[in-house]
Design a binder for these strands. Structure first.
Lengths: 110, 110
DNA sequence: CCGATACTCAACCAAACGGTTTATAAACCT
DNA sequence: AGGTTTATAAACCGTTTGGTTGAGTATCGG
């Protein structure tokens, strides 16, 4: 599990981490705020953030005693590009995509 | 790691499995042909195929003594749809996508 | 029937993962 | 200075993962 794409997929293969990214899509947040929804110690969240950061999916800065996390979408582009190679036709794939997105609009998931 | 999306991401988080999918994008193939490029026992490949199948990324049939595997793209649509939620604007994301695909055209990866 | 080929199952093993607890560092606030 | 809050580090632990070997199943072809 050393290459970029593997790290990205592995990072996304966890509901907690996807939920964290979902939260970050609404804007940056410090660790304790990210940890709050989960029945889990802050240390566990810290580990998840480390995984996300090492996959390039988030970046962290410092603001006083807080460490705000920000979503970084670049690795997601790589994923989408990789997936795009497995579609026979772009038109078809976008049709399916639209259907998927419609299905998804009323779910939350992480 | 029980939900659909997690299983899909986890299945994709391995270079061997991605290489298998890449091969299958050119058409169905039996296990021994899929195993051939790898320095690994057929049993290991069989395990990988099991992971891919349980993620819905391939389907297997029987043809005599062979078990041809076929690529199934439906889970990839779910992944792309999930990722799409993290783009601020579609236009931007397609621009980036194009760039990524260009970068990728001259790589092989799995 | 017999052997070869294609594939899978089961047991095992080292390494990685996802969580915990304990301890530590850094910034804030009296 | 001292205590609180925010966050990470380190050690540990049970489970999963990715590979192995060895045995077993199924189909083909004499």
């Amino acid at each position: 599990m050393d290459d970029e794409l593997s790290r990205t997929f592995a990072a996304l293969a966890d509901p907690t981490r996807r939920a964290i990214l979902a939260r970050l899509a609404d804007g940056p947040a410090p660790v304790n705020e990210l940890a709050q929804p989960f029945d889990m110690t802050p240390q566990a969240i810290s580990k998840h953030l480390k995984v996300l950061e090492s996959a390039g999916l988030i970046s962290r800065s410092r603001q006083g005693q807080w460490r705000p996390c920000r979503l970084e979408v670049a690795p997601l582009d790589a994923v989408t590009a990789w997936i795009a190679r497995y579609r026979a036709a772009w038109a078809d794939s976008f049709d399916r995509l639209e259907a998927e997105i419609k299905k998804m609009r009323h779910k939350e998931d992480g």
